[in-house]
Amino acid sequence: MTLIVGMANDDIGFLVGETMLTPLLLIKGNPIGPVNGEFHGLKIQIINGDSAIAFASSNAVDVALRVIAAVSEEILKNPSTDIFQKTKEFYLAQFLAPNEKPDCEFLVLKLAGERKRLAHITASELKFVERAYIGDQKQMAKLNDLRQPYVGAKEAHVQQPDGSFKIEPVEDSAGQIEFMEISFALERLVERRGREGVGAIAGNIIRVANARLSGQLEYLQTVMAGISLEEGAIGYSLLASNREKRGVGIYYIAGKLGFVMIVGDTEMCRKVRAETLDEFKTMARESWGLDLI
């Protein structure tokens, strides 16, 4: 299963997706047992603060990664590069390779001031859209079935400089509400896979959106916590590195292990043993330059 959903209008720009690499599962078989990072990867890659590329592929994850890497390099050299045309151009160039018929599609999200644009790119077309998904059509139908109305907080307690708190009203925009509804629906969808022997990492999803404070595209963090009679403290923290070197880190407290997924990395997912969350963050910083928060 691959499913990534995107939206872009004057209100919001976002991409939400999961991490399962279905082609690897089909090749190597379903890995029953503990968490296995080998079969997961970062399918939504933030190129810079205003550009992100998501991919889906049934047979050519390596091709999609080469395309994203090439586009990233072009943008690094020339920030004014047309990311939409370059993604299409580099993807079509892959068809020139002998014996290669890649089946990839991309969602490209671009912020340009107040304007946000989303393109759906395949070998045959480049189409600008407000909403789109890539990946498994049946899974998208299931996601729509699992989607529920989102009712957010009506007020926020905002701490003032003197230490006191002020109650301020909160009003979510239509785009923010849609973002939350899709995020929670995808969470419900992928959590079902955890019962199918693909590991606890299957329950994580990756959210990218234009952040309220910075106005730039950022990976959003997630924390899940609980208590198990068998293991004691359980749950995970999904940490994000949104400056300089971009990527995410997922740390599981009960297993004392984590996974690192880095934008532009040649490896889709790196498994790390760490006794604590702080140790995991230190290892990610020293080994790969990620500032996980």
Rank of each mutant, 00 (worst) to 15 (best):
V5S: 00
G6R: 00
M7N: 05
N9A: 02
M20C: 14
M20P: 00
M20I: 12
T22C: 06
I27Q: 13
K28W: 14
K28G: 06
K28Y: 15
G33F: 13
G33T: 10
L42S: 07
Q45Y: 05
Q45L: 05
I46Q: 07
I46T: 03
G49V: 05
A52G: 04
F55N: 00
D62P: 04
V63R: 01
R66S: 14
A70G: 11
I75P: 03
L76N: 12
K77I: 12
Q85M: 13
K86L: 08
T87G: 11
Y91C: 08
L92Q: 11
A93F: 06
F95C: 06
P98D: 04
K101A: 13
K101M: 09
L109G: 01
A112L: 09
A112F: 06
E114H: 10
R115T: 13
R115A: 14
K116S: 09
I121N: 00
K127T: 13
R131G: 06
L143W: 07
Q148P: 02
Y150F: 15
Q159K: 14
S164R: 11
S164A: 09
K166Y: 10
E168R: 09
E168Q: 13
D172W: 10
A174L: 15
G175W: 02
G175E: 02
Q176L: 15
I177R: 07
I177Y: 03
E181Q: 15
I182T: 07
F184H: 10
A185C: 06
E187I: 13
E187R: 12
E191R: 14
R193H: 04
R193I: 02
G194S: 03
E196S: 09
G197Q: 08
A202R: 05
A211K: 12
L213K: 09
L213T: 13
G215R: 05
G226M: 08
I227R: 07
S228V: 07
L229H: 08
G235W: 06
S237F: 04
A240S: 15
A240T: 09
S241N: 04
E244T: 04
K245A: 14
K245P: 03
V248C: 08
V248A: 07
Y251N: 08
Y251W: 12
Y251F: 15
Y251G: 01
I253W: 04
A254Q: 11
L257A: 11
G258C: 11
M261T: 09
M261S: 07
V263G: 00
V263Q: 01
R270V: 13
V272K: 10
E279Y: 03
K281Q: 12
K281P: 01
T282D: 15
R285K: 14
R285H: 13
R285C: 03
D291R: 05
L292Q: 08
